[in-house]
Amino acid sequence: MKNSELIFIPSPGIGHLVSALEFAKRVIDYDSRISFTILCIKFPFTAFSNSYIKSVLASQPRIRLIDLPEVDPPPPEPLKPPVYLIYVFTERLIPHKRQIDDEFKDSGPELLIPGFSNLVPPKYAIDDILKDEKVPPIYTVGPLIELKGQPNSNLDQAQHVKTMKWLDDQPPSSVVFLCFGSMGILSPSQTRELAEGLKNSGVRFLWAMRSPPTKDHADRTLTEGFLESTHDNGMICGWAPQVGVLAHKSIVGFVSHCGWNSIMESLWFGVPILRWPIYAEQQLNAFRMVREFGLAVELILDYRSDGDLVLADEIERGITQLTDRDSEVRKKVQEMKEKARKAVSSGGSSFISTGRLIEDIIDRNI
């Protein structure tokens, strides 16, 4: 039998690595002729779970992980977006990628990927790309979701149990989950607006806040008395097991930065999103979720000289719309939940596309 090896170089961060590992596991389950080598790039500013990686490697001998050497992170620059830090960090890793036994070679000429300088076409579809002879084969294999939820070294077991126990005590479809990703730290002024909007909405909430406030500096980040006034119907934590939270029966909506993993997980569990993009591709993800697919609720920014803010009134309006049991968005999300599960099941579109990819790899060595 002819075997093939695929080499993956995911972007820095645990979220990108999880998708690569999940795809590798899916392909191996489909066909044992394929093996994987994956470069592991640990970004210094985000949480990383070595225990999760070790568990995957222990169960999948056909997956090999190469840890790139650690390099000094770029100095923080307040006026630069997070994606700039990722770019500088990745540039510093390039010499190490070229020192790995010369086994990584270019597989073809560089491709020109057009940007979105004009309005995004309303009828954009994957079929339009596939018709372009200049574009290499594209295989639609998603969604790629780690359903068990990778463990996080920053979350001790006691906090995990506390979070899930709190959710267990809430009524079904009553809690809004708020999480802005591993690098989604809101400004103090934005945090105050969000706190006020949550308080005024009266909704139950679980807020995964980076560096959660303590009594010593709560007045600087949250509206006065917020923690006390919402004690009975809200919980703030530094990190939450996102997959487990979204799968919980008490969750009614998700306030998200619209990272692609978060979008896929919310759709898989049928949880509507209130879009709140922060950086990188999240703006485009949010645009498509709201305007093209109707799968998310929109928030409107207030543009002002001291920075863009989502004001408390707008947050309250968005949460009210998010929790509407009869909204069109909720109906469409439920439909997408069913489509996603059918796609990856035997005979589904993703299942078939994965098979085509494997045969092309084996037969043509692409």
Rank of each mutant, 00 (worst) to 15 (best):
C40R: 01
I278M: 09
R98P: 06
S353E: 09
S55T: 15
T354M: 12
I362W: 08
L144Q: 11
P82M: 00
G149S: 08
I138N: 11
I185H: 00
I366W: 07
T90G: 09
V333E: 07
E314R: 00
G347A: 11
I113W: 10
G318L: 08
E133P: 08
V71P: 08
E5S: 07
T223M: 13
F43G: 03
E359I: 04
S51E: 14
E228V: 09
G15A: 05
K54N: 11
C258N: 03
F269L: 11
K131Q: 15
S153R: 05
L85M: 15
E335N: 06
A208V: 02
K339R: 05
V255Y: 03
P212E: 09
I251L: 04
Q283D: 02
M336I: 02
I7H: 04
S55R: 14
P277N: 07
A195P: 01
G197Q: 01
R341Q: 11
I126H: 09
E228S: 05
A208W: 01
I126P: 04
S49W: 06
Q242W: 03
I41M: 12
D31S: 15
Q150W: 13
N3I: 03
D106A: 15
G238T: 10
P75L: 11
K332C: 00
D302Q: 12
A340F: 10
P10I: 02
L57S: 05
T223F: 01
E359T: 15
P122F: 05
P61L: 13
G115P: 07
T90W: 03
P241L: 14
Y139D: 13
I315F: 02
E133H: 10
L274K: 03
L267H: 00
K215C: 10
Y30H: 10
R304K: 14
E228L: 13
K97W: 13
I236N: 06
F351G: 09
V175D: 07
Q321N: 12
